[in-house]
Structures are given as structure tokens and as C-alpha cells.
Amino acid sequence: MPTPKPIIQVEGLAKEFRRPKRIEGPFGGIRTLFTRQYVSKLAVDGIDFTVDEGELIGYLGPNGAGKSTTIKILTGILQPTQGSVEVAGVVPWKERERNARNIGVVFGQRTQLWWDLPLRDSLELIGKLYGVERDRHRANIERFTELLGLAAFIDTPVRQLSLGQRMRGDLAAAMLPEPRILYLDEPTIGLDVVAKERIRAFIATLNKDEGTTVILTTHDLDDVEKLCRRIVLIDGGKVLYDGSVEKLKARYAPRRRLVVQLAEGARWRGVAMPGVEEAPPEEDAEPGTVALLFDPETAASAEVIAAVLADHQVTDLSIVEPELEGVVHRIYAAREAVA
């Protein structure tokens, strides 16, 4: 069987923003209007990646990395300066409306619902605007009402909804036309833990049961860790990393942490093993705890534990995997050190 064509193909994508140069001095504002000098900024600088149908990828990067610009090109909002993009066989900015029928878009910071109308009105309207066949639309509304728990507030005007409720409404609106690709930009921003969990569960269900391809942009790495198998990390308009979450950790934070709780009165004598070193004590560490860092490639967990137990009386042991948060933090920090 031939491999199916990726649903999203991005090649050599670049986007340059040009703004007239601000002229200082007398009549600066008016002269700025007529200037032929421009300041240009390369927001996206040669990005390539592909996404297969049914993938759920995290598209990450610090502020100003070019994330939003890429998403805006993929969704048909912006035209790139260079490069080629195909989304479900469509060049988004050339066939904008056709592309719109293939995708769902949720921007966490803004709503696409009608502010002054009850949520139900917005959902009905979306169905008609997207030309969804009536019975199918009704069934979809019913299904999403149940999945997202919309029943309690579906007849409330959107302006009176809480952020979490509005977000659920927005997700339902985006998914009603059964898009092949769902773009989520900060879908959990500002939400409490329970609301976040609910939204994550919904996204996971869509991806698993409907096979919807999901592109998730977020600063909440918990979202990514819980949902995404693959991440694309960009910075300075370029792809920094593209692969699985595990490999990213292995590359940027290969070491695990072994936390040892010594028995009362026991003294720490150290462990002499190649590839194992003591971590600097953490501020909120309990007295009598010691943390070791080791790379499982060179020192097996079992051996490190055995070495500790051989020399010490221990009440508790735990191995902590590196968290994505810390990994990404280190990548960003390293980048800033270079810049």
C-alpha cells in the first residue's frame, strides 16, 4: 500500500513583514505616511514540516518565534512571502473558502461565537453557514452537547458565559462542520484545572475517535505532555526540533533524578559511580533528602539504587523523569544565552 500523502505539507515557508519606517523629527507622522523606506522583519524563515492525517502535534516556541504567523498562513489568514503550503490538497490563501471548509480554528483569546446571542443560536448558525445537512448537524450538536457538557448553558447569551464555558462552546462550534484539521491556539489559557482537563479530554477523544488532525499551539506544556506524541519546536522563524516528546527529553535533558530520603540520623556518604552526580539541593527540599542525577544510558537505574542502598539507610526512593516544562525552559534559556 502506498503511504498516504501528508495532510499538511509545508516547504521552505517564509514570511516577511514590512512596515513603513517611522521617521522622527518635525512632521514625522506625515512623512512616515509617504516614506518609501521600510523596516522588514522575517517572522518565519524557512520552515519545513509535514503532518499526517490523524496526528496530534504540539507546535511550540517562545513568544515571537513565528508560531502564530505559521498558523495564520496555514489557516488562510496570511499569504507567505515564500514557500509552498498545502493543507488537505488546498493552498490556503489561494482557495481561502475551500480551505475554511476543511478546517476548524479556535483561538483561545477570542471567540468566534456571536457575543449577544445564546450559544445555541451560534451553533445553529455555524451549521447553516457551513452548509451542513440538517439531520447531521442536529446529531452533531447533540453529541457535542453531551461530550462538552453544554446543556447547562446552551441557552445563555455568549457574553454571560464563563471563560471555560465559552471555550467549550467555541470548540463545539469549530468541530460541528466535522473539519479534517483542527487548529487550537492556547485553548486552555486562563482556565482552571478542571476546565483544562475537560478540554484536553475532548481534544484527545476527537483525535482518537474521529481521526481529526490537531495542531496545538500553547505555552502550557502540560497540554502538550498530556496530548501530543510529536512536537515541532520553532524559534527565530526556524524549526529547532521536530520529533517525539521522549526524544526531545532524551536530547535536551537526558538525566533522570533519583531522590533519596535518608533514615533519621543516617549520614550521606556519597555514591562513587561514573555518570552519577549529586544535584544541588533544592530550596524546598525536606531535611535528609538527597537528589542524584544520572543518565540511564550510562548508569542503569537499578545499579544506582543498589549503590545507594549498599551504603545508606533509606526510608524512601523515587525516580523523577524530566518534565517537558524544564526541558523547554532550558532550550529557551540556552537560546537567550547565545543571543
Binding site: 492525517e53 490523524g54 488537505a88 473558502e97 471548509r101 476543511n102 456571536w114 457575543w115 449577544d116 446571542l117 443560536d121 448558525l125 447553516k128 453557514l129 457551513y130 452548509g131 451542513v132 445537512e133 447531521r136 448537524h137 452533531n140 460541528l176 462542520p177 466535522e178 473539519p179 479534517r180 474521529e210 481521526g211 481529526t212
Partner: peptide, 29 residues
């Protein structure tokens, strides 16, 4: 959807305009 189709279909422009205008009017009222 994974089968390569969606539930969305093109609708006439005039109908889209009527739908959006109707929503705006309901909101205004």
C-alpha cells in the same frame, strides 16, 4: 474526518449574507 470528507458544503453567497444579517439583527434587538 479521517475519511477525507467533512460535513461542510458550499452555500450561495446570498444565503450566507442573509444568515449573518439575521444574526446581527437578532443581536441588535
Amino acid at each position: 474526518m479521517a475519511d477525507g470528507t467533512t460535513a461542510a458544503n458550499p452555500i450561495p453567497r446570498r444565503r450566507a449574507y442573509r444568515l449573518l444579517l439575521g444574526a446581527a439583527l437578532r443581536a441588535q434587538l
